[in-house]
Design a protein around this nucleic acid. Structure first.
Ligand SMILES: [Zn+2]
Ligand SMILES: [Zn+2]
Ligand SMILES: [Zn+2]
Ligand SMILES: [Zn+2]
Lengths: 143, 143
DNA sequence: AGTACTATCGAGAATGATTCTCGATAGGTG
DNA sequence: CACCTATCGAGAATCATTCTCGATAGTACT
């Protein structure tokens, strides 16, 4: 669980601006997420924190994850049968390459989208505002 | 609800091959989906069919949508707070441009992905097997 | 068409994830 | 330290989805 102070300064500053309190629970959750490169469900995260923080409530984990998602500090994706998984995802716009064997996630810069954008604009008169892209495959370590 | 016989022949043939029975309920569900260019949740679909088929059970809608997803006849996407929405999506690999105003969905051919593929392969040693891409914006009619 | 064999259906119960409620707790400010 | 409230924890409530089971209806074969 590598804890990088510089990284932490970045997202902790984010809280100050929003008026939300940076409580002990929220700091613990953010640190754990920021230190792991994989999607975690609320339950998984709660279980991982159970040892070090036995009094952490599951509702708090849900509330915090939802808040972090609104602040664009984490991304969420549906996993299997209707369970959402969350990933620390701050910084500039980018996408994710998810290893289907080990679950590791690599950040991938967003390229080659202008081609789509032109096509959507010219062929469909579609004014693009957002896009969601995720890759699945096998990472270097699992090959 | 434009009903195209040629289109219907395509997916009805799909059932025969799988050993699944093409029942009245499944035909009604497929026809409705194939005739509408927007994502529908199981509940929405069930409500739309309530008038013409009052005895259609919600569980049947869920079961059928799940089956159609496995047969790659529909695509699903999570909508809002953990509710899945389904879209008729047969034919070759492509993506969707969803209008955030009216909900209309346009099919978009998959281009420009080779750039990502090369980058993933060379920079990350990531062996790409799948990808999920969806566009959001405003369609021609809504502009 | 009639019969047998099952897959499928409908209705409601059960499950599981997420959200809500509310009294207790603890940031933050002065 | 005292006050004000946002937040917390625990459990109830909600909501989507799946499961159970007796009834129904495709399908194959007379
Ligand atoms: Zn891997
Ligand atoms: Zn992008
Ligand atoms: Zn539109
Ligand atoms: Zn594609």
């Amino acid at each position: 669980m590598n804890h990088r102070p510089a990284e932490e300064a970045s997202w902790s500053r984010r809280f100050a601006g929003t008026g939300h309190r940076l409580t002990a629970q929220r700091r613990v959750i953010m640190r754990h997420l920021a230190g792991i490169r994989r999607y975690l469900t609320a339950r998984e995260l709660h279980a991982r924190l159970a040892r070090s923080h036995p009094r952490m409530g599951l509702a708090t984990v849900y509330r915090t994850l939802e808040m972090l998602r609104e602040l664009d500090l984490v991304a969420s994706t549906p996993r299997g049968a209707g369970e959402a998984a969350y990933l620390y995802c701050a910084g500039d716009h980018h996408h994710h390459a998810v290893c289907t064997r080990c679950g590791r996630v690599d950040d991938v810069p967003c390229r080659s989208l202008p081609g789509f954008e032109r096509m959507l604009s010219s062929s469909y008169q579609f004014r693009l505002t957002e896009h969601q892209l995720e890759f699945y495959g096998v990472c270097a370590r699992c090959s």
